[in-house]
Design a protein around this nucleic acid. Structure first.
Lengths: 145, 145
DNA sequence: TTCGGTTACTTGCATATTGCAAGTGCCTTT
DNA sequence: AAAGGCACTTGCAATATGCAAGTAACCGAA
């Protein structure tokens, strides 16, 4: 791509993204927060990939430091902790969903229904808005305790 | 990876994507191939992140095994090797660009111009098509040697 | 008020992965 | 024939991970 138009400015955003998402566990935690409504250490531990406790603590701290999650006392039980998605991680949703669409297309063992990809390509904005609304619903319900 | 728990349909595509892109080096190699027109071992080594030779060989083999790249003799010089993107990796472009848009928004040190995000949101299909055309241009030029 | 259970971690240690430096083997160029 | 480039491989020390166990704080019931 040495044609005059687009030089190396592509590189930087990709490297930035790689620093956050280029880690299996961070990536899956973002999925759990953004798509599965998980908020607590215990819930993250329950995911089928089986993250171990030290790695989980390490990645939650990393994501908090990166401004992707906020660590707050659980409104339901003060002794527990909730990790809430920030606007920064909510804004990651379109990228996450784009990856899911791609994966659903190429993973032979995918469990995503074909309707998922078509509904996203028919109405990407609406699809993302739906996920965002789900997240806000979960968090507002939690915080109203 | 055969789990006792049945993952919800969101989970699987994300896990599939995490298995490929949830690795810093694979992620950056995809950038080099899809956005920077790099095709040879030597070019990948030259990227500013400084991948080491053993890791590079390992990741190229992984990406080839995953059907993201094809390994072929360099048409310009038989002793050299080219790694070409497959349709599978070209189809990853929308996800990659979505991540770049997100990163450009949140990375304070981004080098991406503001116009990048707006041009993608104004015309996502056209933007992706432009990148795909660039890739095809590079590969056809290479192959016509 | 003591007790068991829950939650969110931390610690220790064996194993796996990485980074770095130094080869190796096969062309190609001179 | 020699020199150099290219695409790797190998060895080894440093780092990161996975696993099991432990800890501290709190909560609800007896």
């Amino acid at each position: 791509m040495s044609s005059a138009k687009k030089p190396n400015w592509n590189g930087c955003p990709t490297r930035y993204a790689a620093g956050i998402v280029g880690d299996k566990w961070c990536f899956l935690l973002l999925r759990d927060v953004l798509l599965h409504g998980k908020r607590t250490y215990r819930e993250f531990l329950g995911s089928p990939e089986g993250i171990s406790t030290n790695i989980l603590a390490n990645r939650l701290a990393k994501l908090e430091a990166l401004g992707m999650l906020t660590r707050e006392p659980d409104p339901r039980k003060a002794s527990s902790v909730c990790y809430f998605p920030t606007q920064k991680s909510k804004d990651f949703l379109p990228a996450l969903v784009s990856m899911m669409v791609w994966a659903a297309l190429y993973d032979e063992a995918t469990e995503a229904p074909a309707s998922f990809a078509t509904s996203f390509s028919n109405d990407p904005v609406g699809t993302i808005a739906w996920y965002e609304a789900e997240i806000d619903r979960v968090d507002q319900a939690l915080r109203s305790n």
